[in-house]
Design a binder for these strands. Sequence first.
DNA 1: ACAAAATGTCTTAGCGGCTAAGATGTTCAA
DNA 2: TTGAACATCTTAGCCGCTAAGACATTTTGT
Lengths: 151, 151
Amino acid sequence: MFNMEPEVLERFTWYMREQSALTVMFHARVAEQMGLSATDEKCLDLAMRADGPLTAGRIADLSGLSTGAVTGVIDRLERAGYVRRVRDPHDRRKVLVEVTVGDVDKFGEPFEKARDSMVEVLGHFDEDELQVIERYLKLQTETFRKRVIDT
Amino acid sequence: MFNMEPEVLERFTWYMREQSALTVMFHARVAEQMGLSATDEKCLDLAMRADGPLTAGRIADLSGLSTGAVTGVIDRLERAGYVRRVRDPHDRRKVLVEVTVGDVDKFGEPFEKARDSMVEVLGHFDEDELQVIERYLKLQTETFRKRVIDT
DNA sequence: ACAAAATGTCTTAGCGGCTAAGATGTTCAA
DNA sequence: TTGAACATCTTAGCCGCTAAGACATTTTGT
């Protein structure tokens, strides 16, 4: 591998830090717009990004909340119409949390703005460059999850 | 501009969403490792990323917290040794929040892991590709801030 | 088949942080 | 100089979180 100067690394670090802070603010905006707390929005996001419906306990694990707290989260999400409790027919102790809203992108102004913003940015790159960027994003998310989150 | 297929857009949306969720988890890890709440860590991050010291009121604005809450945040950060209260000599009503820790990267394991992870990822690209990625990151953060956060 | 242990969720008590309103101290303007 | 504006702190009340245990269901061991 060629020699990467420290300044380059420093600039990249800055971008990551900046993007990181922007992301936290973005989540706060989305939550506010949906009439949810940051916690509730985070749990709803988990439920939406999962393959199938999650159990209450799995949401507790993924979110880091206690099971008691998750009960409250699901109560509020259910009351607001975002999810529905369904008892698992194969194990009636379990509660499956089913998301009852369709298209993710319908989730208010912040999401639309974020999408528009992304389209605008990507418009500044040609096809070859987009392939580089996609390779980067894919590798970045995978590596970050493996090395930082999944400890 | 050339024609961008919907699937490409969808894949990029997925990466952004994934990265977004990972970032939120990352902040939770960092906060936990520092013995701080998510709120306190967010405020400390604001103070660290600012040019000079911020006032308590400015932190309230930027964080979206009430001034009363910020008083508590600064109390806890000060007690934990991360910041120091300094009265502004030019306007003694104001309280400047001075960060009293040096290198940002000393901030615990998660930060180091994140940095290592970034280095590993960037190692998979040559110099030309890195320039594309940097251009993308710069444009992305700027555009996102302008279009989504600063409404 | 039955009892005991394990599992998954919900309930409750107690704690701590948040908001809103107002108190306190400082600066600005007439 | 005096009243208004400003910046922060204090306080009361509320709400969500954790920890512990209750309840219902499933699994295990005999």
